[in-house]
Design a protein around this nucleic acid. Structure first.
Length: 257
DNA sequence: CCGCTGACCGACA
DNA sequence: GTGTCGGCCAGCG
């Protein structure tokens, strides 16, 4: 007597398909219809990651959680069957430890255009740096949607891989995080960001740093800002003030025009 | 469609 | 300094 819900069924379906179908086509079809999951170590501990043929789709911490809970959450959100994978896709493992991979793709097809836009923008924030929610809103093409950016990141399907921990509040404090504010601080510090200095500057009303040798103004965590010799460093509360003083916005960190 | 919600923000007590 | 209040806007039920 065969139990049709048995885990072996997935394997038999695959075997049947593989028997008389070119392997490449099987992968193409299965990857389109099914998603796969792996468990892997990350900078926040063991995580489950789901992916399709098109790329990474869903990541959640493993914790004490059984895979059944992860697959339930996955199906609830993506309405697609989920099977285990033999091995992690290329580039995933380094990316889980903060080393972004060029080859790592994402499947964001279930998201709205605005959500995709927010995640694309967030993905480009370099390790060790941070940008305010308002900056993400503007870069995503909707400057007024500051609060909505927070709502999108609160349900980021692929945290860590899309580094939403690098999006912080305008006053320099880290703000909330899908895995808790303390975890957000930990991740930022682990990436080499001097959180204390940033918060301290913000407390003095300084949200931007400028160099009088280059006449460029940056976010304090920008790679270029951190290279400014103290003697040539000037703090500003707004970009407008810096521009008024003869500085132009950095083309790397792109503070507001 | 409409009302409600929220990882925000800036102003103002 | 810190608490609160409106405004804001995409998603969701």
């Amino acid at each position: 007597m065969t139990n049709d819900n048995s885990p072996q069924v997935d394997a038999r379906i695959e075997a049947a398909l593989a028997a008389d179908t070119p392997a490449g086509l099987v992968d193409a079809v299965m990857g389109k219809v099914f998603a796969r999951w792996v468990s892997a170590p990350s900078s926040i501990g063991e995580v489950y990651v789901a992916f399709t043929r098109d790329g990474m789709q869903f990541l959640r911490p493993r914790g004490d959680e059984e895979i059944a809970e992860f697959t339930r959450a996955y199906r609830e959100r993506f309405a697609r069957p989920l099977m285990s994978a033999e091995k992690a896709p290329a580039g995933l493992l380094p990316a889980l430890h903060g080393r972004p991979s060029q080859t790592l793709a994402f499947d964001l097809s279930a998201l709205t255009a605005f959500e995709r836009s927010v995640l694309e923008v967030t993905r480009r924030i370099p390790a060790g740096q941070a940008r305010p929610y308002g900056w993400v809103a503007r870069e995503a093409g909707n400057p007024g949607a500051v609060r909505a950016v927070g709502s999108v990141l609160a349900r980021n399907p692929v945290p860590l891989l899309v580094p939403c921990h690098r999006v912080v509040r305008a006053d320099g404090t880290p703000g909330e995080y899908i895995f808790g504010a303390a975890q957000k601080e930990r991740l930022l510090r682990a990436e080499g960001m001097n959180l204390d200095e940033v918060v301290d500057l913000a407390g003095q009303g300084v949200h931007y740093l400028a160099s009088d040798t280059t006449n460029i103004v940056c976010f304090p965590t920008c790679r270029d800002a951190r290279r400014i010799t103290p003697r040539h460093r000037h703090g500003f509360g707004t970009v407008a003030e810096a521009v008024e003083a003869g500085y132009r916005p950095c083309r790397h960190c792109r503070p507001a025009a």
